[in-house]
Design a protein around this nucleic acid. Structure first.
Lengths: 349, 349
DNA sequence: GCGTACTCAGTAAACGTTTACAGACATCTT
DNA sequence: AAGATGTCTGTAAACGTTTACTGAGTACGC
């Protein structure tokens, strides 16, 4: 772990100036003879360029940050898994920030852009506050936001469309002949809760079905709470024949409770979830779920950022990723072809 | 996005030298008057210290890299989720490398330590080759390996104990009265495959049960392949009453096939998996599984690294994390208390 | 009133690169 | 053969910090 060689070391060894060494290492036109001497010296010494000094001079770190609430959340994970290879193949390293759903931490990250330890940032904030907007407007590096920002915010922006997503699922249930479609939502004071609740109502109206408050139950976005909500719903409306669940965890809770109540899925009650996580494919019956395109959003965000890093002052761009319905056994009862889930590496370390 | 202020800007504004600015910013003893002037100037200008210049001078980047095959793999993800907060609270940023199971990429990462863009590295290699060992011996920054390295390798090392893990599960099945315990393994030319296969045999012998090759089937570490292997096993030995699966995906495949064959789990056949991933709790019936302590290993690795960064030349240390059996319905049939899975964040971005 | 000790601030050198500039030498043109 | 052109190299200045060293000014003791 001795102090590594620098271009000065090489210059001495090769009997040339540090400028020549630098030129050779950067492939600038140099006499063959010099190239050989420098290369030889560099090889012998096991020289590796110091990235920090390089960054200081070139004002490029070749690092990009990705900030989200929690890597454990499958949606963020899906983004990460797309972002990483895109950046890597463009020669950027990835700095990961977990903000733990703490707004102050997000603000910190935005602030820290001033430290210039990254060339750009991809951020998926929980909520965009006034403070976010201020910092975004004066950010010291390009930022791409995954999520919604107000019209006119000077950053690239990638968003999902959960409204259409809910509609896809409700339409699907309707097409299967279901007419008494319940909704199990998370708290409506959250952005996804509010949007999905409203979208459910709209979807019903578009289909000419009545909106019945009795068919809606609010729990939370977790399995157990979802299950409890479904139990309540089932007590109130034993006649329901389909459930639109606001995310996959709620849907798993629904499966638990329906099974305990002796209702067959999908024969008696069809169940649709949302987010299309790994769990959807793993559960039994496997879960029909709306993908909001986390992976695509991640990819789009990375590409937007790279594009901006090349071309600093183009207009901010907005990309909306369309949702997609993954149909599985919990609505159609068909046996799904078992396939290797995306996150499944061979063996286990 | 204009060029940010530097200590020179501040120095001019405050009418002091850059040395004084630096001293104030670093809290070195300074006259109150000067402190005030510098602070005021810094505030007005919205100054943020340039991390790159700082690193160059101080030879510390306050970054640490974590390199593994694929974040999508739940085991690595569990490590990451522990590593991140430990580093963060110690003031380090996390640089993430996905090596995609490509050995050359791992080597690259080790090599790139010479660039000095991080202060240390946590790596969970697939296999440790000769080249790994060479590079580890001459690494330009402290490295912690999660996995096994030969005795005497000069790095800190954290390892799991899947041998004991298999024994835990087999003993558990035996205690439940099962005597015809099959094993569904992955390829035995992988390290986990080989170790788990041997451990299964040992566990049986320890219990005084005969080792019967007919009860062992080799597939691969995925759901579909696992299912196929189980189907073959079941045809050969319809009398088996328990299955030890080399990972959770195989176990899920087993559940699929057993269900299709009309065998009840656990009444007819008890099933145990390995790795205790999120999927184990989500499946139905929920899956008894051996946790190899990925989370603990991640935490231990991060702590070892931090410790070494503080104290560069202590003896290399080795930590072994004991396995733990998570008992669920697939062996005991008890209804598990539904709980919020660890990766479940509220809402979905 | 003068030497000593102390506190604080400024100058300048470093960290390891990249790069503008100028100089040395070779090659070509006429 | 002399000037013009071109190719390659070295010198030195940056990038934005931190910090050793020096020196100015103040306080104190005698």
């Amino acid at each position: 772990m001795a102090d590594g060689p620098t271009i000065t070391t090489i210059a001495e060894r090769a009997g040339v100036s540090i400028a020549s060494v630098s030129r050779v290492l950067n492939g600038l036109p140099t006499r063959q003879d010099t190239v050989r001497k420098v290369m030889a010296a560099a090889d012998e010494l096991g020289y590796v360029r110091n990235a920090v000094a390089r960054s200081l001079k070139s004002r490029r770190t070749h690092q990009v940050a990705f900030a989200m609430a929690d890597v454990g959340n499958p949606a963020y994970l899906a983004m990460l898994r797309q972002i990483q290879p895109v950046l890597k193949s463009a020669g950027y390293r990835l700095v990961l920030h977990s903000t733990d759903a703490v707004v102050a931490d997000e603000i910190d990250v935005l602030h820290s852009l001033g430290e210039r330890y990254v060339d750009g940032l991809i951020m998926s904030p929980l909520r965009v506050t006034e403070q976010h907007l201020e910092l975004l407007a004066s950010a010291r590096a390009p930022v791409v936001i995954i999520g919604s920002v107000p019209e006119g915010t000077p950053v690239d922006n990638v968003r999902a469309d959960s409204r259409t997503g809910v509609k896809l699922a409700v339409d699907h249930l309707h097409r299967l002949g279901r007419r008494t479609i319940g909704m199990v939502n998370g708290p409506t004071d959250t952005v996804p809760g509010a949007v999905r609740g409203a979208a459910y109502r709209e979807a019903l109206e578009d289909l000419g079905l009545p909106y019945d408050e009795e068919l809606v139950e609010i729990g939370d976005f977790y399995r157990a709470e979802g299950g409890r909500a479904v139990a309540a719903l089932l007590r109130r409306r034993p006649d329901l024949d389909a459930l639109m669940c606001a995310n996959d965890l709620i849907a798993l809770g629904a499966l638990d409770v329906l099974r305990a109540a002796g209702r067959r899925v999908p024969d008696d009650v069809a169940v649709a979830g949302m987010d299309d996580t790994d769990l959807a494919a793993a559960s039994w019956p496997s879960l029909t779920s709306v993908s909001l395109g986390s992976a695509e959003r991640g990819k789009a965000a990375a590409e937007l950022l790279l594009d901006r890093l090349r071309n600093g002052d183009r207009e901010p761009r907005r990309v909306t990723v369309p949702p997609r319905l993954a149909v599985r056994a919990s609505t159609t009862g068909e046996k799904p072809a078992p396939s290797r889930p995306p996150g499944a590496e061979r063996g286990s370390p």
